[in-house]
Write a protein that binds this DNA or RNA. Structure first.
Lengths: 131, 131
DNA sequence: GTACGTGCAAATATTTTGCAGCAGT
DNA sequence: ACTGCTGCAAAATATTTGCACGTAC
């Protein structure tokens, strides 16, 4: 009586959602992705987009971000990296600084728990908004 | 024609909401705060709780956290500190490691923007859930 | 007295879900 | 063929807001 793990199929919808996320530099919302995918699959529903985003996240193909707002944004870049959030225009950008994995050790020691990963976001005004 | 800044009054409701947040060690949701405050002000509305949480946040008296879920949590501790989020039980705890303000300089250099602050959360399994 | 705050209820916004038919493996 | 996936629409969740009255300053 072993648990059979759920098998994921690669449907046209799922593939296109993944492609859209891998191709964009931005960190789009579910609705933005929906509108984009609709150009190729006009009858796709928003529910399907949400269901696929959840599966893709579970499979580790994408990341979900929910910083500073009531809705989520998604990131097709799964390599560890940090983000910069502009407090003015709300834009989120990738930051190319080395990832400090040693931090996890300190945190694990401090809490007595096991640290899997960490997330770091910088908040401020982006170069475009400074003038 | 100067802009007159909004003046905030300290009402009974606002004071109690702030007190509740300053007293707790947890990082409660708006609804938890609502239930707690209701013990002292039975007729308070959830709308009032949300309005006050926004004002208190704007005044810098509390922090809003929205990590890994669709709803916000609030933190009465405004001193810079990091968080640990348990992927099993969902609990959020404070971490007592020094805050690395130098990180902000690197990020500002990399983006060309101005960094005000950063947030760092560690994700893993807390000591209570490890067994 | 002024204008910010409150309670109430309705509205928004975002995400999830039940269901019957469709489709990937 | 089996079972996961889809579109559709309705539901669930979390948060915001219009309004008339109340209250801190």
């Amino acid at each position: 009586m072993t648990i059979t793990p759920r098998i994921h199929r690669m449907t046209k919808q799922r593939q296109i959602i993944l492609d859209v996320l891998k191709k964009t530099e931005s960190h789009p919302t579910a609705d933005w992705i929906y509108e984009k995918v609709r150009q190729e699959v006009p009858r796709i529903s928003l529910g399907t987009v949400y269901r696929n985003l959840r599966v893709l996240k579970e499979m580790g193909d994408i990341q979900e971000l929910n910083y500073g707002s009531t809705y989520s944004r998604f990131d097709g870049n799964t390599k560890p990296h940090y983000h910069f959030v502009c407090l003015d225009c709300g834009d989120i950008m990738d930051i190319h600084v080395p990832v400090y994995t040693e931090l996890d050790k300190d945190a694990a020691e401090e809490t007595g728990g096991k640290v899997e990963f960490h997330r770091l976001e910088f908040y401020g005004i982006c170069s475009g908004c400074i003038q």
